[in-house]
Simulated scan of single mutants.
Amino acid sequence: MGYQVKENPKCGRDVLISPRESRIAKKAREHRGTWKIQEALQLLNEAAEEKKEVLGHLLAEKYSHVREVMYEATESYREVVQEKRQSFNEAVADGKERIQELTTDIDKRVHNNPWLFLGMVAVGFFLSGYMMSGSMRSEVKYRC
């Protein structure tokens, strides 16, 4: 039922692997890969702190493509952050404007017909009180 056959490198025999085990193995390989990248970045960071001039020279001459990729990544990150910040600010301004329009519209309607809104509020409080008392009555009814 979904089992895979894989050769065991230690003994040379075929081994059955369940789908769950294969997913776990795949996640372990992915985690190991990211761990290796993190370890390499940490080593680079330590080397950069120790020998800034040598690293700058290497990046300038031998590994210019790494520097270009890093520069492009930071620039694209900055652009994305700037776009998101701008769209967020626009959404906040638009929401603020809509709320102000809505409150002025409600205020005008209440001033034009106050008794209607007063009645709606009274009916709302009556219904909420009726529902709350009904739930309290049902608790009392079933107590033994």
Score class of each variant (00 low, 15 high):
M1T: 08
G2N: 09
Y3R: 08
V5Q: 03
V5M: 03
E7R: 10
E7L: 09
N8G: 04
N8V: 03
K10T: 05
K10F: 10
C11L: 07
G12T: 03
D14Y: 11
D14H: 10
I17Y: 02
I17M: 04
S18A: 13
S18Y: 07
R20W: 15
R20G: 08
E21A: 11
S22G: 03
S22V: 00
S22I: 01
I24N: 06
A25P: 00
A25K: 08
A25F: 07
K26Q: 14
K26L: 12
K27L: 14
A28P: 02
E30A: 12
E30C: 08
G33R: 06
G33F: 05
T34A: 05
W35A: 09
I37R: 06
E39T: 06
L41T: 04
Q42F: 06
Q42T: 05
L43G: 11
L43V: 08
L43Y: 05
A48F: 14
E49S: 09
E49T: 03
E49W: 07
K51F: 15
K51I: 07
E53M: 08
V54S: 08
L55K: 00
H57N: 13
H57P: 00
H65Q: 14
V66S: 03
V66G: 00
V69Q: 13
Y71A: 13
A73H: 09
A73M: 14
Q82D: 15
K84V: 13
F88P: 00
F88M: 11
F88E: 09
N89P: 02
E90W: 02
A91N: 10
A91R: 09
V92A: 03
V92W: 02
G95E: 04
K96R: 11
E97V: 00
R98L: 07
Q100N: 15
Q100H: 12
E101N: 12
T104Y: 01
T104R: 06
D105L: 04
K108M: 04
R109E: 04
H111T: 02
N112G: 03
N112L: 05
P114C: 03
L118E: 08
M120P: 01
M120W: 06
V121H: 13
A122F: 13
F125S: 06
F125G: 01
F125V: 05
F126W: 10
L127D: 14
G129W: 02
M131Q: 12
M131E: 15
M131G: 04
M132H: 13
G134V: 01
G134L: 02
R137E: 10
R137W: 07
R137T: 08
K141Q: 14
R143Q: 07
R143H: 12
